[in-house]
């Protein structure tokens, strides 16, 4: 705990501002619905829970992405890892569906980690290559069509059923969040991720096996993406081509808006959580306003830029 007291202020700033911005989004949306429809659906718990349910897939992907970004790397293969895991899970079916999906994610993570940690290929390009290989594999596997196999009952339960009145997907997201947060905060592996992300040479010289840390982080990211893919397949009852594509950039954006440094070594999990909620609510307010895709993209980009200009700025040029 003593670790973050000196940097408490700067580390907290993104979270405070992002939370404030969430309130701004909510109030703009509410004012809009009050003036056009005379009701405030945005503030009803039912609506919010439904938004969080659809946001939980993004949340799980972002959790894995954050671990990799903390290392100063990036995982561009999450889109097709999600799709591949979902497709393999629905193909296998039965009680082995979910374990198969997770195993696909772990395998992709191992390949990514091997390429980045041992072959020392920049993660940006290696994970991109793995992504296109996965896409090729899935096209070959399905023939380019949406597979006919449907999601197993357990997958549907996890993604779209309710438990105690709350969508079970939120519980899964919560569980993943707790695991990742505890891992980052309370385990040696978690601390090693921060150290390696700050300066790999120093970490290596301090006796940390940085290669294994990188490998492990990519496996975590792969597993998270796979879990999200399997659940998304459960939510839409089947897997389909390109189902993971809309998650890649929002996941990166959520992590960065949450205050994680894109160069690695700094960031807290709670920030990523806030970042995901911000993006999910921004999306839902824009769809309530029936904003066309063009306006959405512009607003989306401007929000990221302006949030980062407020607190994500780097240091001035150094000697």
């Amino acid at each position: 705990m003593a670790f973050d007291i000196p940097s408490l202020k700067t580390e907290d700033k993104p979270m405070v501002i992002a939370s404030a911005f969430i309130l701004v989004i909510l109030s703009i949306g509410t004012v809009y619905t009050l003036s056009t429809q005379g009701s405030a659906p945005l503030l009803s718990p039912g609506y919010l829970l439904q938004q969080l349910q659809t946001g939980s897939f993004l949340g799980i992907v972002a959790a894995g992405m954050m671990v990799v970004i903390l290392l100063g790397h990036i995982d561009l293969s999450v889109a097709w890892t999600m799709t591949a895991a979902a497709m393999m899970a629905t193909t296998v079916g039965g009680e082995w569906a979910i374990p198969t999906g997770i195993a696909v994610g772990a395998a992709v993570g191992l390949v990514n980690g091997f390429g980045v940690a041992y072959l020392r290929v920049p993660s940006m390009i290696f994970t991109l290559g793995v992504d296109s290989v996965l896409r090729g594999l899935m096209v070959a596997h399905t023939g380019g069509f949406a597979p006919q196999d449907s999601a197993t009952p357990l997958m549907r339960t996890l993604a779209s059923d309710r438990f105690l009145g709350i969508p079970s997907a939120i519980f899964v997201w919560l569980a993943v969040s707790v695991v990742i947060a505890v891992m980052l905060k309370r385990t040696a592996f978690g601390r090693e991720i921060y150290v390696t992300g700050n300066r790999e040479v120093a970490a290596y010289l301090s006796g940390i096996r940085t290669r294994r840390v990188i490998l492990g982080s990519f496996v975590v990211s792969g597993i998270c993406a796979a879990l999200a893919g399997v659940m998304l397949a459960g939510y839409s009852a089947r897997a389909y081509q390109g189902m993971g594509n809309p998650f890649l950039l929002p996941a990166i954006a959520a992590v960065v808006i949450g205050g994680t440094r894109i160069l690695g070594g700094q960031g807290r999990y709670i920030g990523t959580l806030i970042g995901v909620i911000l993006i999910v609510l921004l999306n839902s307010v824009l769809s309530i306003m029936q904003m066309p895709e063009a306006g959405r993209q512009v607003i989306y980009g401007s929000v990221i830029i302006s949030m980062l200009l407020v607190y994500g700025r780097g240091n001035k040029v150094h000697s």
Partner: peptide
């Protein structure tokens, strides 16, 4: 003073 990768990710959307 933003990282190019994240700044251009956002301006790309714009």
């Amino acid at each position: 003073r933003l990282q190019p990768i994240i700044a251009t990710l956002a301006t790309g959307a714009v």
